[in-house]
């Protein structure tokens, strides 16, 4: 239960951090909040030869809305800062609602959103929330950068589209249009545990009250966070009634691919999705003014 030896670098700016990653490649890992990587190192499941610690890169600890209303979250922004930000709670309530389900305050005091996303645990809440909110990820390397939609980032359990030299430097979450309501619900064995099933719903009503846009993303529902696209599409044009939600839930249950765990069989996870999807949709619809 002690980490294997490693060389530790604690650069103070992004360029130095990216240069170190380029230099050491796959031997090196970035260390952000450490709430997933350090347990893995304690178990020696992860044995990076080099750690590029980002905790002293002050510029990465950023959280701000830009002129278009997009929330920009830097790689070192800790969960606690996001969940306590009144403006984030007002403009992106889904993020704050789901954050309350992420582990415990002691973990959220250190853990970062970017680190969680790079860990890419399909049972984790935030990857699904990023899909529901259509987030974009800015991936930086020493000699350039690219922006990737969240849905192209998650490739499988603990696997992402990050290249060896890249860092997820910034998460960009676009503003929700007027008339949008969101809801997040999950079932876990205990508060703070990984979800056996979690559902993030985003609904937008048009002027006549009909649904004009819908997004539905689920965690613990497959090898990656899962978008239920057919279920979401079925809601567009409806009046968002209980029958519409039941029909969408039936589609969502067929779209997901839960893998099961010691706590829940795939059949039980599908059952949970069938229960949670209509509830999350009802919550979002009620909030979509």
């Amino acid at each position: 239960m002690k980490p294997a030896p490693f060389a530790w670098h604690a650069p103070e700016d992004l360029a130095a951090a990216l240069a170190l990653k380029a230099q050491h490649g796959g031997e090196a890992q970035f260390l952000a909040g450490g709430q997933s990587l350090v347990p893995a190192m304690n178990f020696r499941v992860a044995q990076p030869a080099v750690l590029v610690d980002l905790n002293r890169v002050a510029a990465l600890d950023s959280l701000a809305f830009d002129a278009e209303g997009t929330l920009r979250v830097g790689a070192m922004c800790r969960y606690r800062r996001i969940e306590r930000d009144a403006e984030v709670a007002r403009r992106l309530p889904l993020l704050v609602e789901a954050l309350a389900e992420v582990a415990h305050p002691q973990i959220r005091n250190r853990g970062t959103l970017a680190g969680n996303l790079c860990h890419a645990d399909p049972a984790s809440e935030m990857p699904a929330v990023m899909l529901a909110l259509e987030a974009r990820f800015r991936l930086c390397r020493h000699d350039g950068e690219r922006v990737l939609p969240a849905r192209d980032f998650f490739l499988g359990p603990l696997a992402t589209a990050l290249a060896e030299e890249e860092m997820l430097a910034e998460i960009q979450i676009p503003a929700l249009p007027p008339g949008t309501g969101t809801g997040f619900l999950e079932v876990a064995r205990r508060r703070g545990d990984y979800a056996m099933m979690g559902v993030a719903a985003v609904l937008r009503r048009g002027p006549e009250g009909r649904c004009v846009a819908a997004r539905l993303a689920l965690c613990s529902a497959g090898p990656t966070p899962m978008l239920a696209e057919r279920a979401a599409a079925s809601l567009v044009g409806t009046r968002l009634t209980a029958e519409d939600f039941a029909a969408a839930a039936a589609l969502a249950v067929a779209e997901i691919d839960p893998m099961g765990s010691v706590q829940a069989s795939p059949a039980y996870q599908r059952h949970l999705a069938g229960v949670l999807v209509p509830r999350a949709l009802a919550l979002a619809a009620e909030r979509a003014a």
């Binding site: 239960m1 530790w8 604690a10 450490g34 709430q35 350090v38 347990p39 304690n42 178990f43 610690d53 905790n55 606690r80 415990h104 305050p105 002691q106 973990i107 005091n109 250190r110």
Partner: peptide, 27 residues
Amino acid sequence: CEHGVCGACTILWDGAPVRSCLAFAVQ
């Protein structure tokens, strides 16, 4: 537990409770 689950090693880091088993001393 040494993997951040049990909370026995909780200390205050700049006033905020964190797991001391999930940080390196040099940090």
